[in-house]
Design a protein around this nucleic acid. Sequence first.
DNA 1: GACTAAACTTACGAGAAGTAAGCAACCAGA
DNA 2: TCTGGTTGCTTACTTCTCGTAAGTTTAGTC
Lengths: 131, 131
Amino acid sequence: MAPAEDGPQPAPRSSSGRAKRTLVAAGAGRPPCCPKYHKAVELIGRRWTGAIVSVLIKRQAMRFGEIAEAVPELSDRLLSERMKELERYGVVARNVRPGRPTRVEYELTQMGRDLAPAVHELERWARRWLT
Amino acid sequence: MAPAEDGPQPAPRSSSGRAKRTLVAAGAGRPPCCPKYHKAVELIGRRWTGAIVSVLIKRQAMRFGEIAEAVPELSDRLLSERMKELERYGVVARNVRPGRPTRVEYELTQMGRDLAPAVHELERWARRWLT
DNA sequence: GACTAAACTTACGAGAAGTAAGCAACCAGA
DNA sequence: TCTGGTTGCTTACTTCTCGTAAGTTTAGTC
């Protein structure tokens, strides 16, 4: 990240009152500061995604209702939405088990399991600094 | 949160069709899965917060406009909002330098610097798994 | 006296999240 | 057979957050 961009000239942004800094900066052909990290934050930064991944790291495979219980503040609607996203990104795998009331199991893929260090570090930080 | 409504019976979710699982679970007196981690995700999971902390980790003190340049997609409005939040949480410190036009410098506190491992792990993951 | 710079604010529409309820498939018990 | 229960989602609607654009403030400078 922070690619090149060592500005000798303080340079652009604005011309009067307040012009479009964003556009000026983007228009200068400068790439976004770190597309991959940004994308990662978009993914796991989305509300509840971190919590979902966190509980899936602790137990290996969980059913829909189990995740819902483990994260009580999360509603079914959002849980369903987040799981679909995570599946689409390849972070979790979804397995439907044959049976009467349909049972669905979710588990992390390798990509998802590899998020563990980040999640653990964040947990460590939270434990240390938050009340 | 979860005021009154203390049902002695576990009475887990539903009675017909689909009742309020969320409220039932919360009402059962069960604490949220991990309040601190949840709080952390609320904080750094908010849009752009991760990116802001990330650039502040790389350089030590930055002015408002420098952060804005380093994260070109981020608008002034949100940058201002996020910085206020981060300051309130104690993640960054704000120093106003005397002189006109007003110059403000932001730098991470120890609490903020301690976020570096989590941010680095997330960056590593992003580099490895995202396109 | 108009112009400029830096750091914010304000206004407003669009999109994401929260809340509540419904649905489909199946089965156990009365 | 009818009632009720379980499970994994949807749908409908409200509220909050984000993105975009433009305005404000303070004081030096041309």
